[in-house]
Design a protein around this nucleic acid. Structure first.
Lengths: 288, 288
DNA sequence: GAACATTTATGCATTTATGCATGAATTGGC
DNA sequence: GCCAATTCATGCATAAATGCATAAATGTTC
């Protein structure tokens, strides 16, 4: 075996990769948790080491040279391999002590997870939990989270998925609001996600004549929607168990009760980690 | 894009790779031009960083754990990508100043290359040439050399190959030796490569009754063979132009004149390097 | 079983790399 | 066209990694 190929510093390749991907030294520095001058010097050193100009310094902008473009392709495969390494390594970790990241929607994060986290906190205080309550479904493949709770069956087949009993949801509003509009749903404002106007059709099917333009407040942030509902500004969707816990909130159109499927997901590789397994099992148990 | 995957130090992955491949920290240190304690600490740091035990320290031997085995696979793809990077980077290098490695057989290295190298030396003194005169054909793929001179058509299709006129070879011996044995080839000792006894068959076809056991001195080192010939210890094979230059050497069996094909090879990627191109063209020109 | 050759681990001086603070140049928005 | 926000480059103090020398342990060979 020849080792010439290993002569150049892989850390510098990483700096180059991040710089090319983010488009700037500063961006790369943020991504790598390094200082900007460090990344700059590493890239510069790589250029000297490989005797190749990677970036064209035109003004403050960095533009990849043809050579840099050629190399980027292969550095990217290095990066993909590195990604798998960190993934698989996590799976082999058998220490309970350490961080774990859970991704879930806002409502789940705010209302369902707290008791579960409290239990984990008492039973395994050495586990450091981070909640990623992003609206967009975070990518387990890209390792933004170790465990994800989603409302749809996953399509990726390298994920371990466990379905827990469906949550039931319904339309809710503040009791005083309903009295205001005389319980006439035709007069009501609706609060929903962007694109949820087609829910109007589903309601019309059930005998409620709701038009799409009654959806006046649209937000991707479920908790924001709920805040509007609790402020008596309209009718919104919420899981029953959450809404029922609030005495000022009343149900609207009880026949309309969509089921919210719940899937607890983890990477096949990462699931073998003891820490992930413990948390995963606890979440599944608590949600069942 | 998520950058978690880039968090761990790629340089440590390299140390792990080299250690796993060579089987020891010392070996990896030699391969990477590092000190042995450095490699040891890097591997140790990687284990902490990934929270995984990579090697089982059984006495002085390092044994890969299952986790290490799992990770090695992906570190290897990192290494292969790194190899391509250094390869392609060389191809993009446009500076004449720098090292270049030429691989050739012993006879070619000793007799054909010197005038060529002298010319390169005068025309481009900034190029540092290294000759790898290994018997085994060095692997251009593995980048042991930038340019190779071989005697067979290459099979790899990612190599640039240029055939130069065949060299003619023949059997030679010291003149005094031939007188000693009365020019009777049946009494002569033959000197050849291991496995070249089947040359006896080729000679017999041409009317020389040579038996395989007349090959008494076998060596993979062509120059060693030639030294024996020049010492009057037997008959050996040599390129005509080399043998003819020696007044003490006479030809044996002039009808037997095998052609030695000559191929000048370089990587497709590397050939685009100005330095390689210059040397390559000079070699091809000089051999033509 | 003893001598030898290799291997890994440790302590310490030195080199090297990194981060921070700052300045200069450029871009983008209003 | 100006202001604010980024961006990259430089100098310097500090932190970190590296190499060397050496010890300890193990495998090998005669």
């Amino acid at each position: 075996m020849n080792w010439q190929m290993l002569q150049f510093d892989w850390a510098k390749a990483r700096a180059f990769f991040a710089t090319a991907e983010t488009g700037s030294l500063s961006g790369a520095a943020r991504a790598l948790n390094l200082a900007q001058p460090t990344v700059g010097r590493q890239v510069e050193a790589l250029e000297q080491e490989l005797d190749v100009v990677l970036f064209e310094r035109i003004g403050k902008k960095l533009l990849l040279t043809p050579a840099g473009l050629d190399l980027l392709e292969h550095v990217r495969t290095m990066g993909e391999a590195a990604q798998r390494i960190s993934l698989i390594a996590s799976g082999h970790s058998q220490t309970l002590d350490g961080p774990i990241r859970i991704s879930a929607g806002e409502a789940v994060s705010a209302f369902l997870l707290p008791p579960i986290l409290r239990r984990i906190r008492t039973e395994h205080p050495e586990i450091e939990i981070t909640i990623i309550a992003t609206g967009t479904q975070s990518d387990l493949q890209m390792r933004e989270a170790d465990i994800a709770i989603r409302n749809a069956q996953p399509t990726q087949n390298d994920l371990i998925a466990r379905r827990t009993p469906d949550r039931m949801a319904g339309l809710y509003a503040k009791t005083t609001y309903l009295e205001e509009i005389g319980h006439d749903l035709a007069k009501a404002d609706f609060i929903g996600f962007e694109g949820s106007q087609n829910m109007a059709a589903a309601l019309t099917e059930r005998g409620f004549a709701i038009s799409a333009d009654q959806f006046r407040i649209l937000s991707e942030a479920h908790l924001v929607q709920w805040a509007y509902v609790k402020n008596g500004m309209g009718i919104g969707l919420m899981m029953n168990e959450v809404a029922n816990a609030d005495p000022e909130i009343s149900r609207v159109a009880p026949d309309f009760e969509p089921a919210v499927p719940m899937w607890v997901l983890a990477h096949r590789e990462v699931k073998t980690s003891r820490r992930v397994r413990v948390v995963y099992d606890l979440i599944v148990e608590a949600l069942s």
